[in-house]
Amino acid sequence: KRPMNAFIVWSRDQRRKMALENPRMRNSEISKQLGYQWKMLTEAEKWPFFQEAQKLQAMHREKYPNYK
């Protein structure tokens, strides 16, 4: 399994919040909304999620050194 990228790190919590706030919203619509919201974030707002993704990638490399 691949390490999470910055968008996935960010969207994990956002998806839960959105699903709780909009229980009738379909998963496909939630995904569209999340994509739009991510695009609207500034680079500074995205930065912590890129840092977290880099940490996860480093841990993944250490744990699975022969992963493609």
Rank of each mutant, 00 (worst) to 15 (best):
K1M: 07
K1R: 05
K1V: 00
K1H: 13
R2S: 10
R2A: 07
R2K: 12
R2M: 09
P3S: 13
P3L: 02
P3R: 09
P3F: 00
M4D: 13
M4Q: 08
M4V: 14
M4W: 05
N5C: 06
N5E: 11
N5V: 03
N5L: 10
N5A: 08
N5K: 04
N5R: 03
A6D: 03
A6T: 06
A6W: 00
A6L: 03
F7Q: 03
F7R: 02
F7V: 00
F7L: 04
F7S: 04
I8P: 02
I8D: 15
I8H: 09
I8Q: 12
V9G: 06
V9C: 05
W10K: 04
W10S: 06
W10N: 14
W10P: 08
W10E: 02
W10M: 04
S11Q: 10
S11M: 06
S11K: 01
S11A: 11
S11R: 00
D13V: 10
D13G: 09
D13P: 00
Q14D: 00
Q14G: 00
Q14V: 09
Q14T: 04
Q14Y: 04
Q14C: 12
Q14M: 15
R15K: 11
R15W: 05
R15C: 05
K17V: 08
K17N: 11
K17H: 08
M18P: 05
M18Y: 09
M18S: 04
A19Y: 06
A19D: 03
A19V: 06
A19M: 11
A19S: 08
A19K: 14
L20H: 07
L20R: 09
L20I: 14
L20F: 07
E21K: 06
E21N: 04
E21R: 03
E21I: 11
E21V: 09
E21F: 02
E21Y: 07
E21S: 10
E21L: 09
E21H: 02
N22T: 01
N22C: 05
N22W: 01
N22F: 04
P23Q: 01
P23A: 04
P23K: 05
P23W: 05
P23V: 05
R24C: 15
R24P: 09
R24H: 14
R24K: 15
R24Y: 12
M25I: 07
M25P: 01
M25S: 07
M25R: 02
R26N: 10
R26V: 03
R26D: 09
R26S: 15
R26F: 05
N27P: 12
N27Q: 13
N27Y: 10
N27W: 08
S28Q: 08
S28V: 05
S28R: 06
S28M: 07
S28W: 07
S28A: 09
S28D: 13
S28H: 06
S28E: 14
E29G: 01
E29P: 08
E29A: 03
E29H: 08
I30C: 06
I30K: 01
I30T: 08
S31A: 07
S31P: 00
K32D: 08
Q33A: 11
Q33S: 09
Q33F: 01
Q33D: 08
Q33C: 01
Q33T: 11
Q33W: 08
Q33L: 11
L34F: 07
L34M: 01
L34V: 01
G35T: 11
G35A: 13
G35R: 10
Y36C: 10
Y36N: 10
Y36W: 03
Y36R: 13
Y36H: 14
Q37C: 08
Q37G: 01
W38P: 04
W38C: 04
W38L: 01
W38M: 03
L41R: 00
L41T: 01
L41W: 00
T42Q: 00
T42L: 03
T42N: 10
T42M: 05
A44K: 06
A44Q: 10
A44T: 12
A44N: 08
A44E: 13
E45C: 01
E45S: 01
E45G: 02
E45W: 01
K46E: 02
K46I: 00
W47S: 09
W47N: 08
P48M: 13
P48F: 15
P48C: 02
P48E: 10
P48Q: 02
P48T: 00
P48A: 01
P48I: 05
F49V: 04
F49H: 00
F49Y: 15
F49P: 00
F49T: 05
F49G: 00
F50S: 03
F50Y: 15
F50K: 13
F50Q: 12
Q51G: 04
Q51H: 06
Q51Y: 03
Q51R: 09
Q51M: 09
E52T: 04
E52V: 06
E52Y: 03
A53E: 06
A53M: 00
A53R: 00
A53K: 15
A53G: 07
Q54N: 10
Q54M: 09
Q54T: 06
Q54E: 11
Q54P: 00
Q54C: 09
Q54L: 05
Q54V: 10
K55C: 11
K55P: 07
K55L: 06
K55S: 06
L56A: 08
L56M: 13
L56T: 05
Q57S: 09
Q57F: 11
Q57R: 09
Q57A: 11
Q57G: 14
A58W: 09
A58G: 10
A58Q: 07
A58E: 13
M59H: 13
M59E: 14
M59T: 12
M59V: 13
M59L: 10
H60Y: 12
H60G: 12
H60L: 05
H60M: 02
H60N: 11
H60D: 13
R61Q: 10
R61G: 14
R61L: 13
R61M: 10
R61P: 13
E62L: 08
E62W: 06
E62Q: 09
E62F: 05
E62R: 06
K63N: 11
K63P: 13
K63A: 12
K63M: 12
K63G: 11
Y64H: 15
Y64E: 15
Y64R: 12
Y64C: 11
Y64W: 06
P65V: 12
P65W: 07
P65H: 12
P65L: 11
N66Q: 13
N66I: 11
N66V: 11
Y67D: 12
Y67C: 08
Y67H: 15
Y67W: 15
K68G: 15
K68V: 12
K68E: 15
